[in-house]
């Protein structure tokens, strides 16, 4: 066990955890930020995605020892009232079904839109195929990303 300092959603936190505990468990079980999900533990499904400097990263692939002194944003940090353009677009397209993969999907979309503010279908396909949804929300998710892109552009204007 070690004391590890990290920043989550702009708040400095200190946790006492096993060195090899992945960030996803620090978030879910130590900090009670359960919006970050656990779907495979081996970096395949994407449901544990969080943002670091705006880039999507997999929290199950980052052990505590490596998470030290880094800053992450979880779905709770995007907004609690669903006001972030990605969350809004998701609601307007009624994307979610079971909802379990959705925080990871939304944050992956945030990462995509940061690099590609006006993504092509191919860019959406490539980036979003890295997250798995078993309910099959993909067609609505694609619509929501286009809608979020428009909302973000509007916001910048």
């Amino acid at each position: 066990m070690s004391e590890i300092g990290l920043t989550v959603n702009a708040r400095k936190r200190v946790v006492n955890v096993d060195d090899d505990m992945p960030l996803v468990w620090i978030l879910r079980d130590t900090l009670a930020l359960t919006g970050t999900k656990f779907g495979c533990g081996v970096g395949v499904c994407g449901s544990c995605t969080v943002l670091e400097n705006g880039k999507a990263v997999r929290s199950c692939q980052i052990p505590a020892s490596e998470a030290k002194e880094r800053a992450f944003v979880t779905i709770e940090g995007l907004s609690l009232d669903a006001s972030h353009p990605c969350q809004r677009a998701w609601l307007e397209e009624d994307v979610a079904q079971c909802g379990f993969c959705q925080p990871g999907m939304i944050l992956t979309a945030c990462g995509l839109l940061r690099d590609h503010p006006n993504p092509t279908d191919e860019e959406i396909n490539t980036v979003m195929s890295d997250s798995v949804c078993r309910c099959g929300t993909y067609p609505r998710m694609r619509k929501a990303i286009r809608r979020a892109a428009a909302l973000l552009r509007e916001q910048k204007r």
Binding site: T36, T74, W90, G99, F100, Q102, P103
Partner: peptide, 21 residues
Amino acid sequence: RSRVDGRLKVTGAAKYSVEFE
């Protein structure tokens, strides 16, 4: 109607079983 639980699901607030404290 859009899903009544949509907002909970896009903000991470929907609590699934092993997420109870």
